[in-house]
Design a protein around this nucleic acid. Structure first.
Length: 439
RNA sequence: GGAGAGGUGGCCGAGCGGUUGAUGGCAGCGGUCUUGAAAACCGCCGAACCCGAAAGGGUUUCGUGAGUUCGAAUCUCACCCUCUCCGCCA
């Protein structure tokens, strides 16, 4: 969420930034200054009446203590109260409107983010490794997975419908190995603290990180309470997390952190659940796009002046996993139109998938600056200044485990249909060197 | 699910209709003292919003929402959450 005062004082800039994102400034803040003016006027008038009422009440108290008559004053206070009812309601309504429209305005992208409509305009920042060359026709992971008996998509459909998977044998083991491998690197070598959060969160949390209200249709919600109503963020409803970002970032919601704690770096494994509304027909084969997938997520809370450097470091930490696994990738700087709602700047890591002959997203590393912190009210007290400030939050996949699984299977496939296991992973696979059909 | 207790400022903890934004303690900040540090002592110290160029003024805020009252942290009701015990269960 942007700061109300900032939007008020920088309307042209905000409009320009929204346009760069491909958003419609008119729709998002068309009547901003009208609404803002009306809201402030209502507040001012209501507050003047309240000041008068409070003053009268005090005098009533004084008179009564002195044993004198106060009926005249009490009469005036009563009439103020009636006028106040309407005014207060009006101010509250306008305030809520402002709040809601503010909550739907995306973050401002940084100036170094390239302008662009879609992913076409994303910029390659670096490329690591090069796509493997095969002297045979590489197969997509769904064929390999089925032949090796490590992936069962058909039966998953029976259990849960489309976009679910069952992993078996070495396939299940591989998934678990990847999770452990990633967590070990991040906690043992990159300085993150492991967190295992709840997989269900309330709507307050989803508002905090920016999934609500705009992206409700992308989420799975448990039918254990009332309907979701925009503007009402409950702490007693339950939604499946779309990413560990939500519970982990919200750990410090409504808290004031000590500056000496920062940066706080967490690594969390969780399954992720996404409704994938609007993705109908996309990536229907294989496990690229699932309703449920595993992910190891990196989350940081940093001082504003450090968030850039922490963003680079975090992205590097994710990249290192790909490098250790020997998977070719490239780092993309997302353009304005492709940068997520809450993010000020995002790098995507794209891994090469031989089965598709394309680079596909396997990690997304974002600096949210104070956008989420303002929504979730996460602050810290800088130095010896008494004033609190919002922290900067960051996160990135480190990595999406399901996609790592399929990249690995496709990248390390052999002519005979087996899949080599990279050396760094073998300790996590009980020494297994390759996945063969009999396993 | 049943019974009880409780939700107050960064933290702990008083207050239980009228100068209470809230006693006190801790932490933090500034100062005195000291070669330095500690201790001791003195002072400052919540947040959001509105008006104002500023100085400053005002409003709201004691889990949330309604209500009673001239006036509520304090009274009433509903709801939420936490803790303890019991039951059930991984």
């Amino acid at each position: 969420m942007l700061d109300l005062g900032f939007v008020r004082g920088n309307l042209p800039l905000v409009e320009e930034k929204l346009r760069q994102r491909g958003a419609d400034p008119a729709a998002l803040l068309g009547d901003f200054h009208v609404l803002d003016g009306a809201r402030r006027e209502a507040i001012t008038r209501a507050e003047q009446l309240k000041a008068r009422r409070n003053e009268l009440s005090q005098r009533v108290g004084a008179l009564k203590r002195a044993g004198q008559d106060a009926t005249a004053l009490m009469e005036e206070t009563r009439s103020i109260k009636e006028a106040l009812d309407g005014l207060d309601a009006e101010a509250a309504t306008l305030d809520e409107k402002m709040r809601q429209s503010l909550a739907r305005i995306p973050n401002l992208t940084r100036d170094e983010v390239p302008s662009g409509r879609s992913e076409e305009q994303n910029v390659v920042v670096k490329t690591w490794g090069s796509p493997a060359r095969f002297d045979f026709e590489p197969k997509p992971h769904w064929e390999l997975g089925e032949q090796l008996g490590i992936l069962d998509l058909e039966r998953a459909t029976k259990l849960s419908g489309a976009r679910f998977a069952v992993y078996k044998g070495a396939g299940a083991r591989l998934e678990r190995a990847l999770i452990s491998f990633m967590l070990d690197r991040h906690t043992l070598e990159h300085g993150y603290t492991e967190v295992l959060p709840p997989f269900l969160v309330n709507s307050r949390s989803l508002f905090g990180t920016g999934q609500l209200p705009k992206f409700a249709e992308d989420l799975f919600r448990c039918a254990d309470g009332q309907e979701f109503v925009e503007g009402e963020y409950r702490d007693n409803d339950h939604w499946l997390i779309p990413t560990a970002e939500v519970p982990v970032t919200n750990l410090f919601r409504d808290e004031i952190l000590d500056e000496t704690q920062l940066p706080i770096c967490y690594a969390a494994y969780t399954p992720c659940f996404r409704a994938e509304a609007g993705a109908a027909g996309r990536d229907t084969r294989g496990i690229i796009r699932q309703h449920q997938f595993e992910k190891v997520e990196l989350v940081k809370f940093a001082r504003p002046e450090d968030s850039d450097a922490e963003h680079e470091k975090l992205t590097g930490d994710a990249e290192r996993i790909l490098e250790m696994l020997g998977l070719p990738y490239r780092r993309m700087l997302l353009c304005t139109g492709d940068t997520g709602f809450s993010s000020a700047k995002t790098y995507d890591l794209e891994v090469w998938l031989p089965g598709q002959g394309a680079y596909r997203e396997i990690s997304s590393c974002s600096n949210f600056e104070s956008f989420q912190a303002r929504r979730a009210n996460i602050r810290y007290r800088p130095g010896n200044k008494g004033k609190t400030e919002f922290v900067h939050t960051l996160n990135g996949s480190g990595l999406a485990v399901g996609r790592t699984w399929l990249a690995l299977v496709e990248h390390y496939q052999q002519a005979d249909g087996t899949v080599l296991i990279p050396e760094v992973l073998r300790p996590y696979m009980n020494g297994m060197e390759r996945i063969a059909a009999s396993s």
